[in-house]
Amino acid sequence: MSTTDAQPTDHDVPIYIDTTKASIARVYDAFLNGKDNYEIDREVLRRVQRVAPEAAQLARDNREFLIRVTRFIATQTGIKQYLDCGSGLPTAENTHQVAQRIDPDSRVVYVDNDPVVLAHGRALLEENDQTLFIAEDIFEPERIVQNQCVTRTLDFTEPIALFQLGTIHHYAGERPPADIMKVYIDALPSGSIVAISHFFDPETDEHSPLARRMEDVFLHSPMGSGLFRTRPQIEELFAGLEMIEPGFSLCADWWPDGPRIKPLDQVQYCIAGAVGRKP
């Protein structure tokens, strides 16, 4: 995160930043109450909050899912290398911080093509030689798995943890998202772990209307993306993998850190995730 106390204004914008369109990474930062976002990004948050006042919980559940999954991988699997796709802006408890606290030898490659993310990534590299940022489109998997920086940093003969956390719901191209994931999964060696989180339509009378209202706001906002897919659509992304318990679940229900004392907010039923292992 930025060390400044105030959020940037349009007068502070570097020349390479386009503030006429919201950035996925900066909107996510706004949802997390960060400082690295602009008015156009905060407008997306405000619009979603009009239909779902607790909308920021989507980002918090996603971040906490990342932390718990990373901790599980680092403590239980022996995997020491991570490919984090669509990493977003550095915030508290990033993948490399969680993993390297448990195993300092862990190597993390972050992939993003947002210029603000890359600027933060370059700064991060100065303090951590086990961490690398590369500028690529995460929806072009062939380029990423063949990227020389990736293949020099990660050993594709040993298991790798691949993260697509809060990313694929922003893809709305013609290529089926399951095909994109298949390229990644095919490139991974046996024993690798794949974690995905995704905006979720539970297809229930109680929660589906909210999911579809939020989707409509996201799609017609200055960001223009944010699909709420169903369980079968999300499970297609894990084709060929063995699901790790508890399998597909709400992000909030994937091995929480303690007993549930307070009920879930309604929006928490609208983001789900799972972790799979390649046989």
Results as ranks from 00 to 15, higher is better:
residue 61 D to V: 14
residue 58 L to F: 08
residue 70 T to A: 08
residue 76 Q to P: 09
residue 89 L to P: 02
residue 54 E to F: 09
residue 62 N to T: 07
residue 66 L to S: 06
residue 88 G to C: 03
residue 48 V to G: 12
residue 50 R to L: 14
residue 83 L to I: 06
residue 66 L to G: 02
residue 57 Q to D: 10
residue 87 S to T: 15
residue 84 D to C: 13
residue 84 D to W: 00
residue 76 Q to M: 09
residue 49 Q to I: 12
residue 53 P to D: 08
residue 81 Q to G: 12
residue 75 T to M: 12
residue 90 P to T: 00
residue 88 G to S: 05
residue 80 K to F: 01
residue 74 A to W: 10
residue 75 T to N: 15
residue 64 E to L: 07
residue 75 T to S: 11
residue 70 T to I: 08
residue 91 T to G: 05
residue 89 L to W: 05
residue 50 R to I: 14
residue 77 T to W: 09
residue 49 Q to G: 09
residue 64 E to N: 13
residue 47 R to A: 15
residue 63 R to M: 00
residue 83 L to G: 05
residue 70 T to E: 05
residue 72 F to N: 09
residue 62 N to E: 06
residue 73 I to F: 07
residue 91 T to I: 10
residue 70 T to M: 09
residue 56 A to T: 01
residue 53 P to A: 10
residue 83 L to N: 09
residue 52 A to E: 08
residue 69 V to H: 10
residue 65 F to A: 06
residue 74 A to T: 07
residue 71 R to A: 05
residue 49 Q to P: 06
residue 53 P to K: 10
residue 63 R to D: 05
residue 59 A to D: 04
residue 68 R to N: 14
residue 66 L to T: 11
residue 85 C to K: 02
residue 71 R to K: 11
residue 90 P to V: 02
residue 62 N to I: 07
residue 48 V to T: 15
residue 51 V to T: 05
residue 47 R to L: 15
residue 68 R to W: 14
residue 66 L to W: 04
residue 77 T to S: 12
residue 61 D to P: 03
residue 74 A to K: 11
residue 62 N to V: 09
residue 74 A to M: 04
residue 65 F to C: 08
residue 63 R to G: 03
residue 76 Q to S: 12
residue 80 K to H: 11
residue 87 S to W: 03
residue 59 A to E: 08
residue 87 S to V: 11
residue 48 V to Y: 13
residue 69 V to E: 03
residue 59 A to Y: 03
residue 73 I to G: 02
residue 75 T to K: 09
residue 59 A to C: 08
residue 58 L to R: 01
residue 76 Q to N: 14
residue 56 A to W: 01
residue 70 T to Y: 06
residue 88 G to E: 02
residue 81 Q to Y: 10
residue 52 A to F: 01
residue 91 T to E: 08
residue 55 A to P: 06
residue 86 G to M: 00
residue 86 G to D: 01
residue 59 A to I: 03
residue 82 Y to M: 09
residue 80 K to C: 11
residue 49 Q to W: 11
residue 55 A to C: 04
residue 48 V to I: 15
residue 68 R to T: 15
residue 75 T to A: 09
residue 70 T to F: 04
residue 49 Q to K: 14
residue 87 S to N: 05
residue 74 A to H: 03
residue 79 I to P: 01
residue 79 I to M: 07
residue 91 T to L: 04
residue 87 S to A: 15
residue 78 G to L: 00
residue 56 A to K: 03
residue 71 R to G: 11
residue 66 L to V: 07
residue 87 S to F: 00
